[in-house]
C-alpha cells in the first residue's frame, strides 16, 4: 500500500480565537504498557462547553487517553488538570463533576433498569426522583422493570449513557458510546446527547464513526499510534489538507500506475493493492477527471467502478496514515 504519512497537528489558534477557556489541560502525558507506548508525549486542551471527538483506529491510544482523563489510569509522565484540579488531590470533587461511560460495561444481571439507575443515583447522593427522570430521559421507561440481562445492546448503551448523565455533569466523557449498535439505536443515543448538551456541558467522546463525530462535535482530534495527527474543526481539517474531493476507482494488476503521480493538481495518491483501489485527492473533480481519464487511456490503464465524491474524515485519515479509521 502506498500512502503519504505525516504527523500533522493543526494549530489551535482558530479555537483560541473563540474565547473559550480550557476545562481540561493535558500536558506532555505519556503512557506505556511494557514495550508499547499507548500515548506518546501528548499535549492538548479541551475547552469549556466544547464538543470534542477523538477519532482513531483500534490501538490508536484513544481509550488510554480518556481513561487517564477519567482518573482510571495514571500516566507514566506528564500532567492532567481538570478545572485546575488533579486526580491525586481532588478525586472526590472531580468524580462529582464528571459523567462517564466506559467502552464496555456490563451491569448486575438480576437487577432492573430502575434499580441500577437508583444505585448510581445514590452514589451521587441524588434522590429517587432523579433516577426516575433519567430512566425516562434515556428512553428506557418501558424497560424500567426489566432485568439488565434482558436488555439489547442498544438498551444497555442507553442505560450506560443515562448513568453517565445522572449527575448533570460539567464534563461528559464517553468511550465509544455507540460501537456495535445499529444505525437507529446509534441515532437515538445521539439525540439523547444533543438534548443533554443544552445544559452546556463539555463533551469528549471517542469513536470510530466519522458521522458520529460530525453530528455531535465541533472539534475533531485524530489519533494514531499514541500521537495526535490532526486537531481542529472538521472543515478546517479538510481545508488544511489541501484537498476537498476524491476520485476513487478500482483496477486490475499489481503494477503501480506511475502516470498518476505525474498528473497536475492531484494533491495525493493512495493505492491499495489489497483491495485494488486507487484514491486521488483533488480540489476540483470536474477539472481533473477528464485529465485522469485521458492519461489512463494513453497509458492503456483500465479504470473500473469510478466514483467521485467530497472528502470525509475517513478519507482524511486514510490520506494521513494509509489506514482506515475502522481498522
Amino acid at each position: 500500500m502506498s500512502s503519504c504519512f505525516l504527523i500533522w497537528p493543526i494549530p489551535l489558534k482558530n479555537l483560541l480565537k473563540m474565547h473559550m477557556k480550557p476545562i481540561i489541560k493535558i500536558n506532555e502525558i505519556t503512557k506505556k504498557f511494557k514495550n508499547l507506548t499507548a500515548v506518546d508525549n501528548l499535549t492538548i486542551n479541551i475547552n469549556e462547553g466544547e464538543n470534542t471527538a477523538i477519532l482513531g483506529p483500534n490501538g490508536a491510544g484513544k481509550t488510554t487517553l480518556v481513561e487517564m482523563i477519567e482518573g482510571i489510569q495514571s500516566p507514566n509522565s506528564g500532567e492532567i488538570s481538570i478545572l485546575n484540579m488533579n486526580w491525586k488531590n481532588n478525586e472526590k470533587e472531580l468524580r462529582k463533576i464528571i459523567g462517564l461511560s466506559l467502552q464496555e460495561t456490563r451491569f448486575i444481571d438480576k437487577i432492573t433498569v430502575y434499580e441500577t439507575m437508583l444505585l448510581f443515583a445514590s452514589f451521587y447522593g441524588l434522590k429517587k426522583e432523579k433516577a426516575e427522570e433519567m430512566v425516562i430521559l434515556s428512553g428506557l421507561n418501558d424497560k424500567k422493570d426489566s432485568l439488565t440481562m434482558n436488555l439489547s445492546g442498544g438498551q444497555k448503551q442507553k442505560l450506560s449513557l443515562g448513568i453517565a448523565l445522572i449527575n448533570d455533569p460539567k464534563i461528559i466523557i464517553l468511550d465509544e458510546p455507540t460501537t456495535g449498535l445499529d444505525p437507529h439505536a446509534r441515532r437515538e443515543i445521539w439525540y439523547t446527547l444533543k438534548e443533554q448538551k443544552k445544559k452546556n456541558a463539555t463533551l469528549l467522546l471517542t469513536t470510530h464513526y466519522m458521522e458520529e463525530a460530525e453530528f455531535l462535535c465541533q472539534r475533531i482530534i485524530i489519533m494514531y499510534q499514541g500521537k495526535i495527527i490532526a486537531d481542529g474543526k472538521i472543515n478546517d481539517l479538510l481545508k488544511y489538507h489541501g484537498a476537498r474531493e476524491l476520485i476513487e476507482f478500482s483496477f486490475y494488476g499489481k503494477k503501480e500506475p506511475q502516470f498518476l503521480f505525474d498528473l497536475p493538481d492531484v494533491k495525493d495518491v493512495n493505492i491499495d493493492f489489497e483491495e485494488s483501489k486507487i484514491r486521488l485527492y483533488v480540489n476540483n473533480i470536474s477539472k481533473i477527471l477528464p485529465i485522469v481519464l485521458t492519461a489512463a487511456n494513453k497509458a492503456k490503464f483500465k479504470i473500473l467502478d469510478l466514483q467521485c465524491r467530497k472528502m470525509n474524515l475517513d478519507d482524511l485519515f486514510l490520506s494521513l496514515t494509509g489506514k482506515s479509521l475502522n481498522e
Binding site: G71, I72, E91
Partner: peptide
C-alpha cells in the same frame, strides 16, 4: 471482569 467495579468506583461509590 464485567468492568462494573471500575464503573462503580468512578461513579463515585464509597
Amino acid at each position: 471482569i464485567k468492568k462494573l467495579l471500575r464503573r462503580m468506583v468512578a461513579a463515585p461509590m464509597k
